[in-house]
Nucleic acid binder design. Structure first.
Lengths: 245, 245
DNA sequence: CCATTGTAACTGGTTAACCAGTTTGAGGAT
DNA sequence: ATCCTCAAACTGGTTAACCAGTTACAATGG
């Protein structure tokens, strides 16, 4: 890393505490320093040690916050040298930082909506790009789903349903979409169970809905796949939100 | 955490090294242990110390791997007590673990495709749910974009374009979608620049394309918004992939 | 025989010292 | 002046010891 002057932060305002984890609290403070112009994109950050002193924390906390920023691509860490803010515009970096601490307690409906958006597009793409191997995996997953669906009384089929849709996502051939989908799934599956204790009449539709999706993908028809998937969602939402919130 | 027997891992096969970071290497080993049945969903994991010894690493490496698993919801960590595998099916946990280490070196085309999928759906939702305040922010961002677009010769307008679409995403009112979008953006913006040195004729279309999207959102017409956004994408792809890969 | 208690071992979290590589700037040679 | 040398200070990364809270289990009392 080249020679660069490091800004002294001691003269800038630091906000007071809130109900955030120490790590997210530090993120917020760094964002404020950015907003006040104390830090500028492309500029080198003060060392972890001096940041800790300035922001009244330990180095460990600073370290966790910076690692998080690195994960989101907002900061470039060079070992044994230093850390600099990514070369994006100040507005951009600030906006991106705002969205980071929100990651917890996301609304269930938002999670479901996001998952459906991804599932739907993956299904359309799968109908365009599927290989024979993809089709075999999808059908195997459907078999597994049917088995769980008809044999057991508990919610195990929910995960089989996830595996079914995951196979479709993999057939779409976009690793990023698969990764985003996998990020959502645990948060949904571990919270969805309470809604689904009862299996009313609508549930019997699921196997046929799945089959329609498979057929569309086999025929390599994106339009039919989209319609089948939208139909699947319509009933899924009805199944999840019957009576309770 | 209740009393639970901890499985002894010493008798199970451990695979040899590869080109992975130590952390991801450990993740892979844990996945193998799961596949071999040494670990089962819901079961308590051995302590970080004993895992480190079993897998021939330090506690720090194990720690980082477990934190990552926790982030993806695959593991529940209870301070001063222990760590257990999330109560999902074994297939599910295995599948989810597979997708974790892939997060780096994602293909540019996959990133762009994923971003467009999210942008498109956010635009549609924004046309349905926008408030007046949302509309004002979107138009402000468009002004900023125009200013950057016509004044400067470098790629600064790219970020203004991102801020414009981000405002639309926020108008969609789904925090999860916004979060996913923000995750993608830095990886794209920091790599997109080389493609866009030259500004050929097609570039002059951008402001009008944006305006069409704004108009559709103002009219609260999801159909028109979708069409405008698809049109925007079509030209964007042409702009990005002209000549080079 | 069973319930209660007390303690020792164990758990994840944190910290301070240390490591190896980088940057810096004064001092000297040209 | 200009360039090189090199050691001291500084950088992010790692480790081992420590911390507070939990668990497990043998000793104890009924």
């Amino acid at each position: 890393m080249g020679k660069q002057s490091v800004v002294d932060l001691k003269h800038f305002e630091i906000s007071e505490e809130e109900n955030l984890s120490p790590e997210d609290f530090i993120l917020k403070k760094i964002r404020e320093l950015l907003h006040q112009g104390a830090l500028q994109p492309g500029a080198r950050l003060p060392s972890e040690r001096s940041l800790a002193e300035t922001l009244n924390t330990t180095r460990g906390t600073i370290r966790k916050a910076l690692q998080k920023l690195d994960f989101y691509g907002l900061v470039e860490i060079t070992p044994q040298s230093g850390t600099k803010i990514s070369n994006l515009g100040q507005d951009t970096v600030e906006e991106l930082m705002k969205s980071i601490p929100v990651s917890k307690d996301q609304k269930m409906i938002d999670l479901l909506e996001a998952r459906f958006v991804l599932d739907l597009q993956c299904t359309i793409l799968a109908a365009q790009r599927r290989t024979e191997a993809d089709l075999v995996l999808i059908e195997n997953r459907q078999d597994l789903f049917l088995q769980r669906f008809y044999s057991k009384g508990n919610g195990d089929y929910l995960e089989a349903d996830y595996l079914f849709h995951l196979a479709i996502a993999q057939a779409a051939g976009n690793h990023v979409l698969v990764s985003l989908l996998n990020q959502l799934t645990p948060r949904i599956v571990t919270r969805e169970q309470p809604h689904l204790k009862q299996r009313d009449n609508d549930f019997s539709r699921i196997p046929a809905e799945h089959q329609s999706i498979i057929d569309a993908i086999r025929r390599e028809s994106p339009e039919e796949a989209e319609e089948a998937m939208r139909n699947h969602r319509q009933w899924a939402l009805k199944r999840i939100f019957t009576g309770d919130n």
